[in-house]
Write a protein that binds this DNA or RNA. Structure first.
Length: 202
DNA sequence: AGAGTGATCATG
DNA sequence: ATGATCACTCTC
């Protein structure tokens, strides 16, 4: 068991949070079992100015309501008729910025994760935002969870400082080609050398 | 490279 | 009401 990330950690700009989340441990208590993995890939979504963000131009809808909450909440949405994606809200209340959790290196209860997904290789268990949610049993019901206070969903501090810049690959975000110039900005962050990041690999 | 799948959202 | 879209994944 480790120290949990505090409110102050999340109340920062999304790029800083996206980088600082790398190497930390996402924990989910599912049916009394601890599922966990080290975060190895994130993407930052910058809010109203960011054409790729759900809150582009200040959009505020039933779906993205959680993105407007205080830093440290979870924003989970459903897409493509079958997948969920989980985001950590950054910034402060009414600053609709977030960090998409794209990949984990699974570390605890891999047997349960294999059951929740298919019987796949360990490197396929959490190597994508939809896969990660499936393996960690995250769904719309987890939307709005406060990671700072929840007993069943939180992030444990593994490292006190962000990983060194040389350990982090910065790439364009995945699946946002429609966003024009915003599609090209290097807002995707991967742990260099990790075999657990999603495709396209760095 | 294409299919699958249905909630979500902007239109009207 | 309705139709287009989609921060994806799997299989070919």
């Amino acid at each position: 068991m480790g120290l949990r990330l505090t409110r102050a950690f999340f109340r920062r700009d999304p790029v800083t949070v996206a980088r600082a989340l790398l190497g930390q441990r996402l924990v989910r208590v599912y049916e009394g079992v601890r599922l966990a993995g080290i975060i190895v890939e994130t993407e930052a979504y910058l809010g109203p100015a960011d054409r790729a963000a759900h809150t582009f131009s200040g959009r505020r809808t039933a779906r993205n309501a959680s993105m407007w909450r205080d830093g440290g909440h979870l924003y989970v949405y459903f897409t493509y008729g079958m997948h969920h994606c989980a985001n950590v809200v950054a910034g402060v209340q009414d600053q609709p910025v977030a960090v998409l959790l794209r990949a984990l290196e699974p570390t605890e209860s891999l047997d349960v994760m294999r059951r929740l997904r298919r019987c796949t290789r360990d490197t396929d268990l959490c190597s994508g935002p939809g896969k990660l949610c499936q393996a960690m049993a995250l769904g719309r019901g987890d939307d709005g969870t406060d990671l700072v206070t929840s007993e069943s969903l939180y992030i444990e501090q593994v490292r006190r400082r962000a990983m060194s810049r040389t350990c982090i690959a910065c790439l364009p975000r995945v699946g946002v080609a429609y966003a024009g110039e915003w599609a090209l900005k290097p807002l995707r962050f991967c742990v260099r050398g990790s075999g657990h990041v999603s495709a396209p690999r760095p």
